[in-house]
Design a binder for these strands. Sequence first.
RNA 1: GCCGCAUUCGUCUAGUGGCCCAGGACACCACCCUCUCAAGGUGGCGACACGGGUUCGACUCCCGUAUGCGGCACCA
Length: 494
Amino acid sequence: MTDNQPARVRYAPSPTGYFHVGGARTALYDYLLARQTGGAFILRVEDTDQKRFNPEAVADLLAGLRFLGLEWDEGVEAGGSYGPYTQTGRLDIYRKYTKQLLDDGYAYRCFCSSERLAAVNDARQKAGQNPGYDRHCRRLAPPETEARAAAGESFTVRLKVPPAGSITVHDAIRGAVTVKNSQLNDAVLIKSNGIPTYHFAVVVDDHLMEITHVMRGEEWLSSYPLHAHLYNFLGWEPPVFAHLPVILNPAGKGKMSKRETRAPDGSLYPVFVHTFKEMGYLPEAMFNYLALVGWSYDDKTEFMTREEIIGRFSLKRVNASPAAWNYDKLNHFNGIYIRRLSVEALTDRLLPFVRRAGIQADRDTLLKITPLIQERLTLLSEAAEKIDFFFGDDLPPFDLALLTPKKLTPADVPPILQKARAVLARIEFNHDALAAGLKQAAADMGLKAGQFFQPVRVATCGKKVAPPLYGTLAVLGKETVLRRIDQTLARLSE
RNA sequence: GCCGCAUUCGUCUAGUGGCCCAGGACACCACCCUCUCAAGGUGGCGACACGGGUUCGACUCCCGUAUGCGGCACCA
């Protein structure tokens, strides 16, 4: 399927917020390419923005990647021979290449104050020009700038963009993109605090870590030409670049929010990986769906195993246009994956969700209940409210009006329950016997099965919508079933 | 404002000049199955943004317009 050499691919988020689906999709594609080619998936943390750094974000990121099964071979916590894998640990390295750029005349020191920069920006915009820096310090002679720097004056280091001409860059998804150099700014490479900007750090790190494919969000496409100049000035061969389209909100209008919002009905629209996990989305369903947000294999194949996706993934088939996140479709995927699980596996995944909901469930009992709800689940978290009545001896009070089936009256209910009780008392509690007995009982009373079953269901489960009756009664057991029917009958006669 | 990217059913997509009066999936609707709810089955609704070219022939190529998105920070 692939003719690629082993790829070294990195996921390099900046830890400023929780791990969301956009980042997860990028990490997934990185992982796929690395696994497909037998290469390495590397995790690097871009913490050059000290102001927005959030230590909680790193933990959330690692947990999210592990949940999705995107195990990395190298990087944070995994180690490797290209470290450090956190940018603030690489300051000496950046210093070395800054000096090289300065010495070669591809960069210069800038002493402008932020006030002046802001003023220049305003003036340029008012004059109808592109906002940006006016290259004021670009003409300063190196001996002078060195002296000022040595004297302790604060400065940044800027890239010396070629004054004329244009540059053509290649994107694996979009093809060639040409930009005039006049559109480019003399971007800051090193901030006055000595820490590199993203632009500089990413180029140095990717090169030194021998990254072969850079996948990142589309928002970086505009600065790609800048990075390309940097590769040229440093005399390095650039890796393959692929700018992934943004993920749109479900309406397809505008970017998917990086904050979780609620629908008018109060339900949550998750965007963080940890929230999807808490809601009971399966990692395999997320993996499959995420792969399809922007990529497709052919005109009809959608359900694929991890191995199949790894084998079939191709950057050439990544769409250049943005894709809307479709919760309905993800839910559908999740339901399919839940149904594909073995009863044992589903039970094990359900157990923590059920217990978290406050139900004292034991695995053996749950094992018997799972088959009854397996094809009725979209999310693992939905199980609890579907099976709560299986636990505890007595039912919490329910609305007696629920007992009355369509076309019948409340007065019809007691005779039905009495008939059901009589039949249930004498038959064995297995599926076939229950089916035969209850159907016969309905026929004896001249009722449709549905009419006869409703009071029985409500009296034993406490709700109108419940798993199939025969299986439910069998799990509940004769003793509990008869007692609950008696209790309902008693409430009705009060 | 300037620059860049994108534009097929409501949504995700297939389609690389004739196989397409456009195929699949989610959602929606109807019917079937059925003890409720699901699941499953069958069928239906529904799209090439617009205008010019190029060509015997354009969803596919070119130009323009419109719309959306991104960038133009000592944030990533």
